[in-house]
Design a protein around this nucleic acid. Structure first.
Lengths: 192, 192, 192, 192
DNA sequence: CATGAATGAGAATTCATTCAT
DNA sequence: AATGAATGAATTCTCATTCAT
């Protein structure tokens, strides 16, 4: 079994780190090469061009995110517990992949994303939709369109990271926990 | 009465529209010129360089946002009514300035923003903080740090616009109204 | 009698001052306009274009120089006295027109000089040649080609100004006087 | 043995040839690239920017000039012989480097020269000063300030080249020899 | 496979010149 | 006559990509 070339990994990581801080167009390929400690030409052995590289990074981020959510969820749990799991999944993902949230946010819906990347992003949303739809049917969650609830909750999560990046907030355990509580109050069906 | 040079306005608008869709580095100045229907050199009669142009756009967006919030708020109202006002203020702002939210989100905390731009962004947050602190003291709002609540609520609002931009959601009156209700459940102090 | 427009004079002076310090291509027309305290368009009422302006400055310098030499020379004087006169003429010219030497040196033989300008430069040389030829015939001056002696002596004079501009030398009366003495030793026919 | 990149050499040579004829600002980088037969971007692999390129050319000229003078001088010779050596050194230098004199003259003391370039120019002058000071002490040379004598003699030499460039003079062996004789009469202490 | 020197198209910016006022 | 805002061609410089080694 051949190790999946660590040059490829190094390039992906370098691109992730740079592009999440400096945007796609703001990141020169030679800088990616330098950070990955490879020759400029080497990138093109692994990726057809800059666009393909950015898409690969994006897909890696989304795949990682999806995996984190899937690993976190226990289908047998209650709605409250499932939400807590999803929230912890998001949170752990963003701790292990500190640049990935920035990257996804910055690159979401940019023109260079190809259909496959968009499809993957959709599947992440779809995964959460399933959870929401189930508990809407059980009358536990607010009955708004699932995509609306996802937009609000995921947006709020992104908001936390933006605030951290701008040094207005420290994302510690306590902050994450009380955010989760607040978000649950947003999602659940209010008492009559 | 000074006619506020419509070239300057046209350039600002063109830059807003383009940079909110394509990022700062992804927007060539000649394209801005073309969209503004002015010569490429003309931009430099009004703005020292690209950076200064982006800062001017950013400040205009933030100032407009602050004004919308200030106009919306009635200090005599109840917490619930004040939140509704703020939410409507945000909403009306984003309707009148369809690119501004995207722009602010994309450019927030980017390296080319100068101190003045950052200060203006801070003052918007400070304005909302005052509202939150007041009603936290009155025991109406959740007692988390104000910046946390702002990060969540503003993040959620941005999430709505992202979802709309990605055509997953249509932001109509009803959507905005139910989002507002959901956000209020997030912000208010839960009953014991 | 109408004053010869002082705008024209102001433009010529501004161009002289700037172009003598920053070269022709290094001097933007708007800067000339600013220094002359006229509108940018005004320059083009007096001069067809930048090239014509530079030629006008050049010709003014050369004409001034020729006049200074002509005024200085007394044809009845001895060779020694005539040389002293020419030297003083040069010196007084460069005192009254502090930028002119630099300008002439910097622009001599540049491609934008037109035939008329070159002809004027030639006539300055021709004027000095006459002096040299006369005293060569009388056996007072070295019998090298007159242009050679001019090249050496005028070059030396320019050298003094360069040294002054580079702050290696202060061109005071004494320096000028001893330079003149030295130059005379260069020009005169050495004793057998 | 390192092959001293002939691209770098070609660029330096192209810049020297062009800038010595057309000034610094009058020489577009693409023209340099074309003359050097390299791509426009290639120049920037070897020189940080146009200013750095001009400084490199200037320093190469001055270094070459200094070397020519140093090689020419025999410290054991008489004053007369040493001057002849220096003069031949200058002359040979300008024959081998036909553009260098023009370049040095045109660029001397221009604002884009960096301190290192200026220091090198000073060291050339210092080298000749030592020669002059020595023979002033021995009573052979005129007792004016050394910089004054250098300004005159070097200026005269430059004058010869200007005259040649303007096609008023042909710099052949005979011309150089009689110029040298004339200059010696300028430099040496006149008999009482 | 890997490299990095080389490139030229395209980016930001400047500037000679025009022209409506 | 005088202006200075406006322009687009030209300038400096960058960077995605290629290709000889």
């Amino acid at each position: 079994m051949r190790m999946p070339s660590d040059k490829r990994e190094a390039i992906l990581r370098a691109a992730l780190e740079l592009m999440s801080q400096r945007t796609y167009t703001g990141t020169p390929m030679p800088l990616v090469a330098q950070r990955a400690a490879v020759g400029a030409g080497t990138i093109y052995r692994y990726f057809e061009n800059k666009e393909a590289l950015a898409n690969a990074v994006f897909r890696q981020c989304e795949a990682e995110l999806l995996k984190s959510l899937q690993n976190a969820l226990r289908v047998t749990d209650s709605a409250r517990e499932q939400f807590r799991s999803l929230w912890r999944g998001l949170w752990e993902f963003s701790r292990k992949n500190p640049y990935a949230f920035h990257f996804i946010e910055l690159h979401h819906h940019q023109s260079y994303l190809d259909p496959e990347s968009r499809a993957l992003a959709d599947s992440v949303i779809r995964f959460v939709e399933v959870f929401i739809e189930r508990f809407q049917r059980e009358g536990v969650l607010r009955s708004d369109p699932p995509v609306l609830l996802i937009a609000l909750a995921y947006g709020a999560f992104v908001g936390l990271h933006k605030a951290e990046a701008e040094r207005r907030l420290v994302l510690d355990e306590e902050t994450i926990a009380s955010s989760e509580a607040a978000l649950w109050d947003l999602l659940r069906k209010p008492e009559e």
